[in-house]
């Protein structure tokens, strides 16, 4: 168990594993996303309440889930790196931030595109969308803090600490936004998601989840290689890695 842990902490090992895994992740992601899109857009029946507009959930819900999953990954990787002084953790955290931010943006845009036909407006200060927006701000803060330092090692550690503080705050922010919304929103707003799900609707959605996770894995592998290389420029193994 611990030897495996130590192996994962070694940059050349991580570099090799990431390079080897990337094509597999990408291939399976293409299959899963392809099936999910075709199944969701073509074969799933329209929802009895929302009609064909519900098909937006096939891209919205997976990206919203990914935005939170990637933030958690980033905070956990940062915590591991800070506590056990494992540099690869910083590389994972640094590679995660832009991916997570882009998924958050996707969730926001698709959420508001769904809101227009359902609420009659692009932005209704729905609690989930508002939390998602604040999550985007948190991502931007972490990314700006990382790049603000001249010494990259310092930026890594500062960004990791901020990611942890943000992770502790995310549930608080979410519940306070829900409370605020229940106080101020008199009109009943239809909630996104949760249409009466039946098999032909559900399977493509699950497939999109899996596909987004795998795609995230592929992009993370690519970025992680870059982050590791940037941190290990002086090491001997880099020569072999580049020439191969």
């Amino acid at each position: 168990m611990w030897t495996w842990f130590y192996k994962l902490a070694s940059p050349p090992y991580v570099y090799g594993v990431a390079a080897a895994l990337m094509p597999w992740f990408l291939g399976f992601a293409a299959i899963a996303i392809g099936y999910g899109l075709i199944g969701g857009l073509v074969f799933a029946p329209p929802d009895y309440q929302q009609g064909d507009a519900f098909r937006i959930i096939y891209v919205h819900v997976p990206s919203a889930w990914m935005s939170e999953f990637v933030y958690t990954t980033m905070a956990v990787a940062g915590a591991i790196a800070l506590i056990w002084r494992i540099k690869v953790g910083f590389a994972v955290a640094g590679a995660s931030a832009p991916i997570g931010a882009s998924f958050t943006l996707l969730a926001l845009v698709t959420g508001s595109m769904w809101g227009k036909p359902m609420w009659g407006t692009y932005w209704a200060w729905d609690p989930r969308l508002t939390s998602e927006l604040i999550l985007l701000f948190l991502y931007v803060g972490v990314m700006s803090l990382r790049s603000a330092f001249e010494d990259p090692a310092r930026g890594d550690r500062a960004a990791a600490l901020l990611a942890i503080v943000g992770a502790v705050n995310i549930p608080i922010i979410h519940y306070s936004v829900v409370w605020w919304n229940s106080l101020h929103q008199a009109a009943t707003v239809a909630k996104l998601g949760k249409p009466s799900i039946e098999g032909s609707m559900l399977w493509p959605l699950l497939s999109m989840f899996v596909g987004f996770m795998l795609f995230h894995g592929a992009v993370l592998c690519l970025r992680l290689q870059g982050e590791v290389l940037n941190r290990e420029r002086q090491s001997a193994w880099v020569r072999e890695a580049i020439n191969s």
């Binding site: 604040i134 701000f137 931007v140 943000g166 922010i173 306070s176």
Partner: peptide, 9 residues
């Protein structure tokens, strides 16, 4: 940029 999102609650 860092503190304001955390201060929203």
């Amino acid at each position: 940029l860092i503190v304001l999102p955390l201060a929203m609650p």
